[in-house]
């Protein structure tokens, strides 16, 4: 956005024409000009602002309002005050879903970030065919999550799936992955790690390439070894990319839905019912739209707190200017 760019105020011919006859009184003219600048700026961002208000702010307010109602999507909504919030306090399934969501994030984010970083380091070199590898690793991210979910469900089929077949070749009897309350969530997490590592790797790779070569050269002169180089130079200077990647990936992980929907539908039992899937169940299977809105707010607050925490952590430690 270029809302506060000074160029805007003098951009159009109409502006300069109007500016001309008011030089005598400086202060009011400036103020008028400032008002005009503001108005013009708002006019320019109006289309995107309208979209923002209509499709983002309004629905969010809608969700807050809806959380005060009992509604089955068809009948007239009935105002129930804070009843949905009281229900939440006593709803063990909701808190199980919160726990499952946190468990998923804890499985997904560290694995994905470490793998992506390792890949980025490996592919951050001038080597024949490196671009082919970069494309290969990003391919899963470009595929449809639902289609991938179906394919992975086949792969993890206990009797006819590829995974247990490969395990059997080395003498291991694979578990019933997706029907086991122990394994279902790790399988879902691994599918997502597989799918999004390449995407994360892209950002980290860009970050690595932005680190000036001279810093490494200077470090080499000082006799810094590879491990120190990684922890004292690469990692700290990668923080802007890391910051972006972690913020967006953590938010995305908290919102996990599609893989669960395709592969386990929240089961077995409630072992893979993430909060987002539970919201879907409440809204579109049980038709408790008001209660689902309440749960959506819980998810919103969770993400808000975690993201704020990440911001606070990174703000103090991030260097953007390498010069």
């Amino acid at each position: 956005m270029t809302t506060n760019s000074p160029g805007l105020a003098t951009a159009g011919p109409s502006l300069s024409k109007q500016d001309a006859p008011a030089p005598a009184v400086a202060a009011p003219g400036r103020r008028r000009r400032r008002i005009r600048t503001t108005v013009e700026a708002y006019l320019l961002i109006a289309p995107s602002l309208a979209g923002f208000l209509l499709f983002l702010v309004l629905p969010i307010i809608g969700v807050f309002v809806l959380s005060l109602f009992s509604w089955d999507l068809v009948s007239t909504p009935e105002f129930v005050g804070l009843a949905n919030y009281r229900r939440l306090a006593g709803d063990g399934a909701a808190w199980t879903a919160v726990g499952n969501t946190v468990y998923y994030v804890a499985l997904n984010i560290p694995a994905q970030t470490v793998l992506a970083l390792a890949l980025a380091l490996a592919l951050n070199r001038k080597m024949r065919g490196v671009k082919v590898f970069r494309v290969l690793f990003v391919l899963p991210w470009m595929a449809m999550p639902v289609a991938l979910g179906i394919i992975w469900t086949w792969a993890f089929d206990p009797r006819h799936g590829a995974v247990n077949h490969l395990l059997s070749l080395v003498g291991i009897v694979g578990p019933n992955w997706l029907t086991s309350t122990t394994w279902a969530m790790p399988v879902i997490a691994s599918v997502n790690v597989w799918q999004y590592t390449g995407y994360t790797m892209l950002f980290l790779l860009a970050g690595l390439q932005a680190i000036p070569e001279q810093i490494y050269e200077a470090a080499a002169v000082d006799g810094v070894n590879a491990v120190q180089r990684f922890f004292k130079i690469t990692l700290p200077l990668l923080r802007p990319s890391m910051f972006f990647v972690l913020i967006t990936n953590v938010i995305g992980s908290f919102q996990l839905f599609d893989t669960v929907f395709v592969m386990t539908q929240g089961g077995p039992g409630t072992s893979t019912t993430t909060l987002n899937y539970y919201i879907y169940q409440q809204a579109f299977q049980l038709f408790h739209a008001g209660y689902a809105a309440t749960l959506a707010i819980v998810l919103f607050v969770m993400i808000l707190l975690v993201t704020a925490g990440q911001f606070l952590y990174f703000r103090k430690r991030t260097v953007y200017d390498f010069s």
């Binding site: 979209g51 499709f55 997502n192 999004y196 995407y199 967006t248 919102q255 996990l256 893989t259």
Partner: peptide, 13 residues
């Protein structure tokens, strides 16, 4: 899931 905000916005729109 893990999509940048712009993609999500575009999808919503």
């Amino acid at each position: 899931m893990l999509k940048p905000t712009t993609r999500r916005l575009a999808a919503t729109a």
